[in-house]
Design a protein around this nucleic acid. Structure first.
Lengths: 155, 155
DNA sequence: GTAGGTGCAAATCGTTTGCTGATTC
DNA sequence: GAATCAGCAAACGATTTGCACCTAC
């Protein structure tokens, strides 16, 4: 995909200009991050990276994702239950729809939220740096499933 | 305070009607939760409870807060860095202002967000159960501080 | 009297870190 | 060639849990 390629080149350029080295392990993580449509966890990234590079350690994936987060090129979505998901394609804050059944995460494109931070800043006196908007619910696919008694889950 | 008293009685009634016992430890946690203006962590609740009841264990505070969360009478705000804060007074979702310097958490009263979940539900097909809106920034008090070189923090 | 609660210490689990040897630049 | 990075295993730290004793009802 063209836009993935562009995004990958962008990330490589950002790392290069800050003097970070481009190891095969890092490149593999970058490629997976850029190719991921959903919002993978570090564990998921690690599994996919291992499919091509079986020798990459989990620690290295953690370090690379953390590095990308630090330079503002990956958006981290942390949840209470020790669960973190990452978006390497849209690192700016944007609202998400999170399915509490299948744990999928989808982006929401919703106009009218763009001015919200400024408005809150003006009303509160806070200097707003960042924000986060998440909706928790049940996705259409999970709603369509007729649950068997054995796999009912209410989490 | 009158409203705290009412809230406390409400919580006691909710626990009673579900058959939960009202131990002195639980009552102490309830009282602290209801009296807390900010959004305390379990650790903070534990410290304050110990001021009156030095024998209350941290595990019990965890269990009580978890219980209240389960019955929907406490709002949990979980952050990525293994940090959770609790609001025992307004358990329904509402936006928050979080200072990245002093870690204080303030409520935002902002009209015009009430219909947002319904609107998102309609547009996306999700059944929305819950949501969360947080703004991260620097509170007026922290903005006013002239930072010494030694305590500059950029987190 | 008994189901449920408390306190303690140990277990848990995602994430981070210290160290040594390898690699990118 | 030197500073940075990868891999490993051990450390970390907030939260949870198993269990023996206790207590609210």
């Amino acid at each position: 995909m063209k836009e993935n390629q562009n995004r990958l080149e962008w990330l490589v350029a950002r790392l290069r200009e800050r003097g970070f080295r481009l190891t095969p392990q890092r490149m593999a993580v970058l490629r997976i991050l850029v190719a991921s449509e959903g919002h993978p966890s570090v564990e998921m990234i690690h599994e996919r990276v291992r499919a091509e590079f079986p020798m990459v350690s989990l620690a290295t994936v953690y370090k690379t994702v953390h590095l990308l987060k630090e330079i503002g090129e990956v958006l981290e979505l942390a949840f209470g239950d020790d669960h973190r998901r990452y978006d390497g394609n849209r690192p700016r804050p944007h609202p998400h729809l999170i399915c509490v059944k299948c744990h999928s995460i989808a982006d929401v494109d919703f106009a009218g939220l763009a001015e919200l931070p400024d408005e809150i800043a003006h009303n509160s006196g806070y200097q707003i740096l960042n924000h986060r908007l998440d909706f928790f619910g049940i996705c259409p696919a999970c709603q369509a499933q007729v649950p068997h008694a054995s796999d009912r889950r209410y989490d």
